[in-house]
Amino acid sequence: MNFGQAVSSVLNNYATFSGRAPRSEYWWWVLFSIVLNWITAFLDTALFGTFALVHFGDASYVGAVDVFTPISTIVGLLLILPSLAVGARRFHDMDRTGWWLLIGLTGIGALVIFFWFMIKGTPGTNHYGRDPLE
């Protein structure tokens, strides 16, 4: 599966949590998401500049957010559901339930998921459907 096919597949299965996703689909989607986030961050900076969202008197509050990012925020929100769906389908490819995504909420769990997603899926048919590489 190439870059265009992977992005198209994920967007066509926007909120589909059933079925299986091969490694290539998942990792091309990750690359697409990263590049899109860079582009939207650049657009936000070019269009809106940078400014502090929190002010305290004449000076910005310590720890204030220095960038206004409406485009990045909207795109990020739009990418959450397909990212979760392709992650669940990636787990299905390894014959695991998509609920394993919840371990990503822990620090070490995110590393475990990272390494699991590099492993080849179950060959042939499993509980979640036929092998997407067949």
Rank of each mutant, 00 (worst) to 15 (best):
G4I: 13
V7R: 06
S8R: 10
S9V: 00
L11T: 08
N12M: 04
N12H: 04
A15Y: 12
F17I: 05
G19I: 01
G19V: 04
R20E: 14
A21S: 02
P22H: 02
R23F: 06
S24Y: 13
W28A: 04
W28N: 02
W29F: 02
V30I: 05
I34S: 01
L36Q: 06
L36I: 09
L36H: 11
I39M: 13
T40D: 15
L43V: 14
T45H: 13
L47G: 09
F51Y: 03
L53T: 00
F56K: 08
F56T: 14
D58T: 07
S60H: 12
V62Q: 11
G63I: 06
G63P: 10
D66M: 13
T69S: 05
S72Y: 04
T73P: 03
T73C: 07
G76D: 00
L77W: 10
L78P: 15
P82N: 13
P82H: 14
L84S: 04
A85D: 08
G87S: 03
A88L: 01
R89V: 02
W100K: 04
W100L: 00
G104I: 01
T106E: 12
T106K: 14
G107T: 02
I108P: 06
G109W: 08
L111V: 05
V112P: 00
V112Y: 06
G121F: 09
G121D: 11
P123C: 13
P123G: 10
